[in-house]
C-alpha cells in the first residue's frame, strides 16, 4: 500500500535521507530499527509531510503524496504517533479525542468508545488535561488521537521512549489491537523487545538508507545482523 522510492530529505544544511526505498503491505507491521541519527525520525516526519523531501517519490495505494502538506497526507489516510508524544498540553483527554474523531467520523471502524476499549486508561482520565498525564498515558492519548482519524497507515516514532516496562507492554497490546483491525503500521523502535513482539518484519536503517529487511523470526535467529547493524548482541 505504501511505496517509497529514492526518498531524499533533510534539514537546511544536511541531507539525512540518502535515498530510502520502502514497500509496506496492507495490514502488516514493520519494525524499523537503527542507531541514533541514522534518519528514522526524519523518514517518519517526511512521510507525514512535516519535512519536505528533496527527491524521490511516495505513493499510498497509487496516490502520489510526495511533498504534499501534512493535512493532505493525513486525509489520504496516514496518521502520526510522534516522538515525544506531542499531545496538546492544555487540552483535556476528551478534547483530544473529540478533535480527532470529528476528522475521522464514518471513515472506518474507530470511534471514541472503541478507542477507550483498546486503551481503558483514557476513559479514566477523560477530564484531565494532557499536561497532567503520565508519559504512558500521554502515549496512549497520542495513539488514540491517531486512531480516531481512522487511518490506513499509522507511523509510530519510538512509542516506548521513556516508559516503564509494564507500560511498554500495554502499548504493545494496543499495537496488536490496531493490527487486528487491519491498520498498517510502521513502528520506529529502540526497544528490541517491543519491536520483536509487534512486528511481522524488521527493517534496519543506516546512514540514511534502509540496509536490511527480513521477517522478525529470521532477524531474531540471525544475531549477526543485529550485531553488525545495531551494535547489540
Amino acid at each position: 500500500m505504501l511505496e517509497v522510492s529514492g526518498l531524499q530529505s533533510g534539514y537546511k544544511r544536511s541531507t539525512v535521507l540518502q535515498g530510502v526505498d520502502l514497500h509496506l503491505e496492507s495490514g502488516g507491521v514493520l519494525g524499523l530499527l537503527g542507531r541514533n541519527g541514522v534518519g528514522k525520525s526524519t523518514l517518519i516526519n517526511t512521510l507525514m509531510g512535516l519535512v519536505t523531501p528533496s527527491a524521490g517519490r511516495v505513493t499510498l495505494d497509487g496516490r502520489d503524496l510526495t511533498g504534499k502538506r501534512p493535512d493532505v497526507i493525513a486525509r489520504a489516510g496516514v496518521a502520526l504517533v510522534p516522538q515525544g508524544r506531542r499531545t496538546w498540553a492544555p487540552l483535556t483527554v476528551t478534547e483530544h479525542l473529540d478533535l480527532a474523531a470529528r476528522r475521522g467520523k464514518g471513515k472506518g471502524p474507530w470511534d471514541i468508545a472503541r478507542v477507550i476499549d483498546l486503551l481503558p486508561r483514557l476513559g479514566e482520565r477523560r477530564k484531565h488535561e494532557a499536561g497532567q498525564l503520565s508519559g504512558g498515558e500521554q502515549q496512549m492519548l497520542a495513539i488514540g488521537r491517531a486512531l480516531l482519524t481512522n487511518p490506513r497507515l499509522v507511523l509510530m516514532d519510538e512509542p516506548s521512549d521513556g516508559l516503564a516496562p509494564a507500560v511498554v507492554d500495554l502499548i504493545g497490546e494496543a499495537i496488536g489491537g490496531m493490527k487486528a483491525e487491519g491498520v498498517t503500521l510502521l513502528v520506529v523502535e529502540q526497544d528490541l523487545h517491543l519491536a520483536f513482539a509487534v512486528a511481522d518484519e524488521i527493517a534496519v536503517m543506516d546512514k540514511g538508507r534502509i540496509v536490511h529487511r527480513s521477517p522478525t523470526m529470521e532477524f531474531r535467529r540471525d544475531s549477526s545482523v543485529a550485531h553488525a547493524l545495531l551494535g547489540v548482541a
Binding site: M48, G49, L50, R69, P70, D71, A74, R75, A79, L80, P82, R86, W88, A89, P90, L91, E95, H96, L99, A100, R103, G104, R145, T149
Partner: peptide, 14 residues
Amino acid sequence: RASVADREMVSAMG
C-alpha cells in the same frame, strides 16, 4: 488551543 500548543500536530490530524 491545540494550535497554540502544537500546530504541526493539528495539521497531522488532517
